[in-house]
Design a protein around this nucleic acid. Structure first.
Length: 415
RNA sequence: CGGGGCGUAGUAUAGUGGUAGUAUAUGUGCUUUGGGAGCACAAGGUUCGAGUUCGAUUCUCGGCGCCCCGACCA
């Protein structure tokens, strides 16, 4: 994309009503627009990041055999009454409205109940199981206090996945496979080294249990105890002598870190299915309640976390997999335009995503914008480069400059 | 939902009970062009309502909006 065509502008200063680093940088770079507290729109650059994260998540979910769907945002009151979660006293984050005829309707903050209800039309025999579905959906939650930029919003993008299984064992096997898939996701978005699975509540052998995925982040809301071996992590609420004894671990081997929750997974057992009436016939013709587990990744929060963790005083440093573009091509002078145009065309024709700064601006301004936007690889084209015939490649993270031919660069990007 | 803070131009900030200033961004022109260049001109503003006052952007009360801390976060 030619930057002269990009309608968004970068800003020199952060808005005063945003204190969170993620919101400051994303707004300054023109990735997002604040509509109101806890509600943001995604502009071309931000949308590309969202799409990249979704793509990674979708690939990992599809590897698990999950099928993508999209549920409605408007939700039926009766469905939620069956599990006693319609009442504002029980769930305090409902957005609700009413139809013209006066009957109530809810805006989806979660989709567990509706999806179980929906599955009743499609699942009736053990032959139909297991089945797994996922969606990318805008969740609406009437948070009392939205905060921290895009980390805790009233409207946000979430990937949620639901597995319906015949037996506890089948359910548990899938649950464990998802843990691996989630770790793949967090590795691919650049947070692998600092993201940990934590057991949140209860033991693994109780009927309902859950795990969280916590990313180490100075501005995180949670406290997580991380073992020095880097593999074991415990949520603050279960970090006690009993847990430690069970695990055979010493208190002194753990270090407490601020973390932010980027994913969580729940096993419901058969509870929801029983409440909502999702049963299948087994091979003896006997009715059995279906096992349900649910799996969430906050896509927009993940984007915010990446910015919180991977940025410096100059701007964002996107990991390769989620960066809005692979290459930021800067043409510095009028004389370099023709040369840069050619590079742009050759890269684009090979399917490489390039943001091409062809604007009629001074070099310094282009460098500053480029640092802020944070595309990991930059090609700088100026008078110097044209003479040598080599490309000047600068790495956003390390600041190192190297010279490559166009061909070598393309090969490098393909790997 | 409790506590604290803040609302002045697109953005960021001064200031004042009596004609509202600067920077930056924007428009025009010229000079510039490897880390946010320079000059000139132009356009652009006091969150809303009530009260006090001869007069309120400023003081008082209320609404609305926003930020932070806490509570909350299947």
């Amino acid at each position: 994309m030619r930057q002269s065509h990009l309608f968004t502008k970068t800003r020199r200063e952060a808005p005063k009503n945003e204190e969170a680093k993620n919101a400051q940088l994303l707004i300054r770079g023109g990735f997002i627009n604040k509509e109101m507290a806890g509600v943001y729109s995604f502009l071309p650059l931000g949308l590309k990041v969202i799409k990249n994260i979704k793509k990674i998540v979708a690939e990992e979910m599809e590897k698990l055999g999950s099928q993508e769907i999209i549920m409605s945002t408007l939700q039926n009151k009766e469905t939620w009454e069956k599990t006693d979660r319609w009442d504002d006293g029980k769930v305090d984050i409902w957005f609700k409205s009413a139809f013209k005829n006066g009957s109530e309707v809810g805006f989806g903050w979660s989709h567990e109940e509706p999806i179980v209800e929906m599955m009743k039309s499609h699942v009736s025999s053990y032959h139909d199981l297991p089945v797994t579905v996922h969606q990318f959906q805008n969740k609406l939650r009437n948070e009392v206090r939205a905060k921290s930029g895009i980390m805790r919003c009233r409207e946000f993008v979430m990937k949620d996945m639901y597995c319906f299984a015949l037996t506890e064992e089948e359910n548990l096997t899938f649950y464990n496979r998802v843990i691996e898939a989630y770790l793949n996701v967090f590795r691919r978005v650049g947070l692998g080294d600092i993201t940990f699975v934590t057991s949140a509540s209860g033991g693994v052998f109780t009927d309902a249990f859950s795990h969280e995925f916590q990313t180490v982040c100075a501005t995180g809301e949670d406290n997580t105890y991380i073992h020095k071996d880097g593999k074991l992590a415990l949520n603050e609420e279960i970090f006690n002598d009993k847990t430690l004894k069970k695990l055979g671990a010493k208190k002194s081997d753990f270090e407490i870190k601020k973390t932010t929750e980027v994913g969580n997974i729940f096993n419901f057992g058969t509870q929801k299915s029983e409440q909502l009436g999702l049963y299948v016939s087994d091979n003896n013709g006997k009715k059995k309640p279906v096992f349900l587990s649910s799996y969430g990744i906050g896509v927009t929060r993940l984007m915010g976390t990446i910015v919180e963790v991977l940025s410096d005083d100059k701007g964002i440093i996107w990991p390769r997999g989620v960066s809005p573009f692979e290459i930021h091509l800067l043409s510095l002078t009028d004389g370099s335009k023709k040369f840069a145009d050619d590079i742009y065309e050759s890269l684009v024709s090979r399917g490489i995503e390039v943001l091409y700064d062809d604007r009629d601006l001074r070099a310094g301004e282009k460098f500053t914008d480029s640092d802020l936007i944070g595309i990991p690889t930059r090609i700088i084209v100026g008078e110097k480069t044209i003479k040598s015939g080599m490309l000047e490649i600068k790495d956003r993270l390390t600041d190192k400059i190297k010279e490559l031919t166009l061909k070598d660069l393309i090969n490098e990007l393909k790997n």
